[in-house]
Write a protein that binds this DNA or RNA. Structure first.
Lengths: 141, 141
DNA sequence: ATTTGTGCAAATCGTTTGCATCTGA
DNA sequence: TCAGATGCAAACGATTTGCACAAAT
């Protein structure tokens, strides 16, 4: 017999946490469910906290920050730097690029194939390339 | 007869400010001289303030912040977002890309021709592309 | 004279941390 | 049991702002 969706989502989150080597605590589970429930998301700590509170999940903002960083370290999230005042976290950890609209503070994935960054430059001596970030800044017109 | 270098630098800075529509005040002049004296630079407000103080220029940190933003707005500088905790300003306002080394907090221009970002993606409906930022993150090895 | 810029210190804002308390294994 | 998590409030660091004073046109 089939399980309820809620339970399934819960188990999925739990599993994901275990695989990442994180203890599946109540708040980590709830946050994971919010983060990974549908498609890829781009959130700040404030946004996630607000969402959690709105859904009746009891978590402190501090824990949201800690959790986002733990998830990032565990490879479940990617931290995106586009706004000097805020940190965004992306549930899509694959290599991809972003549109960023300052007017509305919205960060979205660039759909379709990656922008081809042909001819990677030679990195400075003593260093190696770790990652290439491409942010296409857009503006409303 | 030739003028002293100091005077020339001062006049150049003054002219640059006037052209940008900014009143050439003492501190704006001094900061402009530091910023544009040799080649392109990548600085944070703190760095520039420290440098100014070290050279005996009397400026407050608040004024450095204000000035950097005014310069940016006037098109004399470019603000570069690579570090969630700090804002860098680049004296090279031409279209170009950066290496960023987190280990040493160093931001440098990518030399040579621009990385070709072929096939710019179609921006989200209602928006147009403003700028494409490419940051090549490197790590010491 | 009038407008604009500056310095200082206090305020702000996102984020981190210390510590006492709770919780999952 | 007990290492590891959490919540709260206080601490933090970069940046901004209010306001009295000073400088530029």
């Amino acid at each position: 017999m089939r399980k309820k969706l809620r339970e399934t989502a819960h188990e999925t989150a739990t599993m994901r946490l275990r695989q990442a080597g994180l203890r599946p605590t109540r708040q980590r589970n709830e946050l994971a469910k919010l983060l990974f429930r549908d498609g890829h998301r781009h959130l700040t700590a404030e946004m996630l906290h607000a969402e959690a509170v709105a859904e009746g999940v009891k978590v402190s903002l501090a824990t949201v920050y800690n959790t986002l960083h733990q998830f990032t370290q565990a490879g479940l999230l990617l931290q995106v730097v586009v706004d000097p005042t805020r940190s965004y976290f992306d549930t899509n950890t694959a290599d991809h690029q972003h549109f960023y609209c300052e007017d509305e503070n919205s960060l979205t994935d660039i759909p379709g194939p990656e922008i081809s960054v042909a001819d990677l430059p030679t990195p400075p001596p003593g260093t190696e390339i770790k990652r290439v970030d491409v942010v296409v800044h857009v503006r409303r017109h």
